[in-house]
Amino acid sequence: MPAAATIVKAPRTPKAGRDLPAAISVGLALLVLVLGSLLFYPAAFVAVATVFACVGVWEVNRAIAGKGISVPFTPVMVGALAMPASAYFAGAEGLLFALVASTGATVLWRSLDPEPGAAKSILAGVFSLMWIPFLLSFVFLMLRGEQGPTAGMTLDLNDINPGVVQVVIMLLLVVANDTFGYLVGALFGKHPMAPKISPKKSWEGFAGSLAGATLVAIPATVFLLDQHWWVGFALAIGMVFAGTGGDFAESMVKRELGVKDMSNLLPGHGGVMDRLDSILFAAPVAYAIFTLLGRF
């Protein structure tokens, strides 16, 4: 046999650095799960999102443990379970109470442990609570809206809670931010925004995110929510800045912890936190915009 025929070729690495077929399959499965539960059974969506929050907390705590810091796992995980449900069923007051209670429990739990490093442990636990379940809970405040929580199924989409539509629009804008930013950045990106934090993000991609999010936000708010066009424009600007800030924040944390991905639970995507990073910062901004500008 010719010598060239016996050479084993190394597997090709996708240009994006990910397994694209796996990433697309997982992405579509998550899309069906999230949108299906959101539109037809909001309480199930709360449960699904709570699971994501708990897995995200576990990923972050595991990464922090690699630096020799032991996070008080039990009170932090209880807080991650309690905050989403409190926000959806009891509103902003319930979320605030759950945050204060879980933070106090974290401090008390670790203070009773004689092991050294209590201060770092408490700060890491409070950081996990504030970053993941607390910020994500603004999605549930938005979801309940002025009509309050929906416990049953919503089979009539003509009578859907406006809060559900707001959450759908927010998620669409987060996806638009990532998609348009990636496409424009890959084609035209030459000027990195923050090369030490995220070398692949460029100013050209950021401009693409702004343009793409605006194209999605204005028609969505006008036709789906019957709002003024400038509410959609403000929402697009807010979502792009918040989503980009969320990406940078997680990149900084991963760089400090010395990890590439928070985990490998989602093939082609990395960890759950690698999918939640933009949403965590986008949720409170979207809630504020809808709450304040939606009144005019």
Rank of each mutant, 00 (worst) to 15 (best):
P21W: 10
S25Y: 03
S25D: 00
L28P: 01
A29G: 03
A29Y: 03
L30E: 08
V34I: 15
L35A: 15
G36P: 11
S37C: 09
P42E: 08
A43Y: 13
F45E: 05
V46D: 03
V48C: 07
V48K: 01
V48Y: 08
A49N: 07
A53S: 15
C54W: 04
C54Q: 11
V55H: 12
G56R: 00
V60M: 15
R62D: 13
R62E: 14
A63V: 03
I64H: 03
A65N: 03
A65L: 01
K67W: 09
K67Y: 10
V71E: 03
P72Q: 06
F73W: 14
V76R: 09
V78N: 10
G79Q: 06
G79E: 07
A80M: 02
A80V: 00
L81T: 06
M83E: 11
A85S: 14
S86D: 05
S86G: 10
A87C: 09
F89T: 09
F89A: 03
F89G: 04
A92M: 14
E93W: 14
E93S: 15
L95Y: 12
F97K: 15
A98L: 04
A98P: 05
V100T: 12
A105K: 12
W109G: 09
L112E: 14
D113G: 08
P114F: 03
I122F: 04
L123A: 13
A124F: 07
V126K: 02
S128T: 12
L129R: 01
L129N: 00
W131T: 02
W131L: 02
W131Y: 13
I132R: 00
F134V: 04
V139F: 13
R144H: 08
R144T: 02
P149I: 05
A151R: 00
G152C: 05
